[in-house]
Design a protein around this nucleic acid. Structure first.
Lengths: 351, 351
DNA sequence: ACAAGTCTTGAGAACGCTCTCAAGATGCGC
DNA sequence: GCGCATCTTGAGAGCGTTCTCAAGACTTGT
């Protein structure tokens, strides 16, 4: 029936509309200086033929590529794929980005890179050359990876650094980590808790430090000490369990824990349960991230809602709007909120 | 310091190596008929300059685009982004596909399309024209969307239909739904259950039917009736709750339920709990999909492990290998397994 | 009515690559 | 050592767009 259709090119449209190819291009790109009458005629032809410009050809002739690249760790991604999905936020980032790109006629691609070795430069460089993206999105911890940011700066490719507020090239965006931690700790203090433990993330993430800062500030404001109340994990389940164990061992009077991500909070929950502690009656728990998983645990966890998707969305919009060499002084901060669920309650009254 | 570097093109390499541009192209594409000595010289130049071919240019001159497109429902994706992430399998599909594409030098792009309206043709058509992907991956229910499959067939774009075994264009892949449901039901029968309810998915998904078939077959083999034991949901939480309620109301002797996805299973779990039923002591529960979420519920759910990532991976590989017009008679079936967790136990002994 | 703009349009080059085809180099059989 | 086949190399066209620039059509002011 339908003959094998050749691709409809701008030339076909030009012919059909009886104008030059250049005029069609102008119409497609909403260019100026086209008589309304001609414009309509061309538009009609475009509709009739179902013409859509080829991205490859557009890219070839110097325009944008309409591609935003998101860098991900290959190794990490593999692990996520197997088991961490839904407890981590790669996917929220992904879909948030894809959606926003789609709304602006862009596409998001995920580039898997071996970010641990010094292959980074080669691998990322190759991707940049092959794809020529209009922008790149970096998430923690890549946002603070010098090899990566330098390469991008050198190539003059606009990029966003999520979870980084350092000066330097690239648009910095944060999710108000300090404030969010402060909010969480303050809430616990309001509930009467005096000994509030913190399971921090690894120190190579700036946001780990910010969260600790916010927690400390809240304690200080209430005149509470923070001695022996800090443990550091690596965002993994196991590390969360050991950290919780250490905190509980060291502080018999502990009544609340803030964990720097959902994984570790879930681990703390299990740990508490194993020790015969009831959550929230004996121990209150607040986690960071609020990935979907925490709604289904028993009890559902109170969590700091990191607006990941929205932040990525903002990043995409910045990248699209931004001139390649624009200044990016101001840190864009997307505020996080606190979602109260059943893992927090007033501090128990000790006998 | 570093001067704004112009993109390294094939021409630069040719010049550097002292050969023609065409020779470089041959080396890059592992073409035949190049003297080893020349090949090495060119390779050296490529390394020295850090040359990587531009995908856009390659595409322009008729070669592949190295893009695999995954079609997703825009509306659905938005919902996932907000709250369903991690309880659905969009993300597993995504990362599985991205990983496999990456391994073969391809990229996966997600195209959001309004699959409900008749805009499909226009929207999808535009994406195909713009991107000119080498292959398209369709997941349920899009795999069985006539408008979509016809458009793809017409354009001669290789595509994979996941969760569809119907004849026709496109590579069909299934995840052994009938067998998996049979396996789940059989396991429950082994545990002594005689009244096993089924919460099916919506009928427009073929796989909903297959799962019901497998369940029925297992019951029949054990000489058990299935009267009043079937309820249909829409894969959403609410529908799962109503279905579970209906099943339990109607069958006081019910001791087990198979739910056609994790969402609905989780809903059934809550419903049972609300009714004072203990899982698994009073009621055993098996879900489909085995998304990460079911490991963290209380109790963790026994689930049919749908090998989604692997299936998508297989699909990608097929698409990459396949000739545009090759025959795709054989259905590729990736087998599902059963992961036993704490939501299944021997049937209770009634007084 | 004429010069000097301003709008509108189109011709041609360029982007970076691969394809086709022809020419030169090399090898083989006798 | 000659003719022919094969291997290796390169020149040129073409892919579908946008950019530059020049030419023609219309305005406007006097």
């Amino acid at each position: 029936m339908a003959r094998v259709r050749k691709t409809v090119t701008i030339r076909d449209v030009a012919e059909d509309a009886g104008v030059s190819l250049q005029t069609v291009s102008r119409v497609v790109n909403d260019g100026p200086n086209v008589r309304p009458q001609v414009r309509d005629k061309v538009r009609a032809a475009i509709d009739r033929l179902g013409y859509v410009p080829s991205l490859a050809a557009q890219r070839m002739s110097g325009s944008r590529s309409y591609i935003i690249l998101a860098i991900n760790d290959r190794e990490r991604t593999l692990a996520d794929w197997r088991e961490r999905l839904g407890t981590d936020w790669v996917d929220q980032m992904l879909l948030g980005g894809i959606l926003t790109c789609s709304q602006h006629g862009y596409r998001m691609m995920v580039e898997l890179v071996d970010t641990h070795s010094d292959h980074v430069e080669r691998e990322l460089g190759a991707a940049l050359s092959a794809l020529q993206p209009d922008g790149v999105i970096l998430t923690p911890p890549h946002s603070e990876n010098r090899l990566i940011t330098q390469l991008l700066a050198e190539r003059r490719i606009p990029f966003a650094r999520i979870g980084s507020n350092a000066p330097g090239p690239g648009i910095p965006l944060t999710m108000g980590d300090e404030g969010a931690a402060h909010l969480a700790a303050t809430r616990l203090i309001e509930l009467g808790h005096r000994r509030i433990g913190m399971i921090a993330g690894p120190s190579q993430y700036s946001l780990s430090g910010w969260r600790v800062d916010g927690w400390k500030r809240a304690l200080a404001e209430a005149g509470l000490p923070h001695d022996g109340l800090l443990e550091v994990g690596d965002f993994g389940y196991e590390s969360g369990a050991s950290a919780a164990t250490a905190l509980l061992d060291r502080n018999p009077d502990l009544t609340a824990i803030i964990a720097s991500n959902d994984q570790m909070a879930l681990a703390a929950l299990e740990t508490a349960r194993d020790r015969g502690l009831r959550v929230p009656d004996d121990l209150s728990l607040i986690s960071f991230d609020n990935t979907p998983i925490v709604r289904f645990s028993q009890p559902p966890l109170t969590a700091v809602d990191q607006p990941i998707a929205e932040t990525v969305s903002r990043a995409v919009e910045q990248l699209i709007a931004r001139e390649p060499d624009g200044d990016n002084d101001a840190v864009i901060e997307v505020a996080a909120g606190l979602v109260e669920r059943a893992s927090t309650a007033p501090a128990p009254v000790r006998a």
